[in-house]
Nucleic acid binder design. Structure first.
Lengths: 209, 209
DNA sequence: GCTAATTAAACAAACGTTTAATTAAATTTA
DNA sequence: TAAATTTAATTAAACGTTTGTTTAATTAGC
């Protein structure tokens, strides 16, 4: 945190705020705590972001883009199963990489408040949902997949990855791993990927014999 | 809220607090908001519960019992699949019936804070996890189930039910139902049950032919 | 007449935000 | 290049609110 450009400092504050908001929630974290953790004067939050609310929105907006990324990595494959796998892989990747951020997203979704931010998040999640929906629908049409409840199958995929990443403490306890860095390391990530692939093969795949 | 016994009034306050805490989180809700929503004087919260913190703990403790209930309803069945189905059914039932409460539980689990309450919740969830683990393990030993990743399979079950119940708004949007009372009505509950059963049959069941 | 329940008012502490002053950096002028 | 000027970044202190909690007085039930 020395001799950095302004945008770096702004990003650094956003990083700190993201971590705190994710771990404890928007209301639980005070501007004073953020400024202390980021080692800045409390007035700098208003100076840079305008308000605590705006800071929170900036934290979310900064990483709530894409969904094109998914479409791109999916498009490379031909079979529906491969497309689905590619999407799941990317999902796992993003959730492991940004699990603190995802905590914010899902906490926001769980709130029954119709804010502009909540709508925006819901729209983005729904967009991703539709991508997966189309893949499975096509797979069924192609007789590559069994006829399943598509909506609930997509929800299941998201729910599984989310369940894994949401609670670090719980994941450690269940997987019998030492700390969170292990629970979210490469080995466990591969394990989750393997499990999810097997589950989808079993659920969607048509026996070939 | 008239001519009720004291314990009823206490319970009513707990009901109101539970709803508000679940919808917006502990820190986001003030004692004044609770007292207003419950139509009581603000001092009554301290009078009945001691503090806002204690009220929150009472909200959680009131419904964080059982796990015997699961064991009981599971014990009636003989085959591993029936046991697992019984457990899943109960899980769905509880989550639909207490979905606001479950919001609190999972929000608490997502927080990276090692409070006494968090430990207690983690312990309870883990207890339930072990019940499901044993069922699947026995099923595998009996050659009734395929050899799967047991830990992740249990996590998947919980994650799916949770994903469904956590975000009412999202569930409505995805399932294309009008309002939340429909999304959490009997019809959709049966749909989720059916989906989860099929998923488990596909994932765990050994082809009989 | 006594205990329990309920109230309005007040409490200090913490909240998000703003102010006005100061330092640092960038730009312009000589 | 050096000094002068302007703009940007940073600070400590104060702002008015809201927070959870307590008090002391009052009402209700037995």
């Amino acid at each position: 945190m020395e001799e950095t450009k302004i945008s770096d400092k702004r990003d650094y504050i956003l990083d700190v705020a993201e971590r705190l908001f994710a771990e404890q929630g928007f209301e639980a974290i005070s501007v004073r705590e953020i400024s202390k953790a980021a080692d800045i004067n409390i007035a700098m939050v208003s100076y840079y972001f305008g308000s605590k609310e705006k800071l929170y929105e900036d934290v979310i907006n900064r990483k709530l883009i894409s969904s094109d990324t998914i479409a791109k990595s999916v498009g490379q494959h031909t079979s529906s199963m491969d497309k689905l796998f590619a999407m799941v892989d990317l999902y796992i990747e993003k959730f492991f990489e940004r699990r603190l951020f995802q905590n914010i997203i899902f906490r926001e979704m769980a709130m029954n408040q119709r804010t502009a931010m909540a709508e925006k998040i819901a729209a983005q999640v729904h967009k991703n949902f539709l991508l997966a929906y189309d893949i499975i629908q096509t797979g069924i049409d192609n007789k590559e997949f069994k006829k399943v409840d598509i909506e609930l199958t997509v929800m299941s995929i998201i729910g599984i990855v989310r369940m894994y990443t949401t609670s670090g403490t719980m994941a450690c306890k269940i997987l019998k791993v030492e700390d969170e860095s292990e629970a979210f390391g490469k080995k466990q990530k591969d394990r989750l990927r393997k499990h999810l692939r097997q589950l989808l093969i079993n659920h969607l795949g048509i026996e070939s014999k």
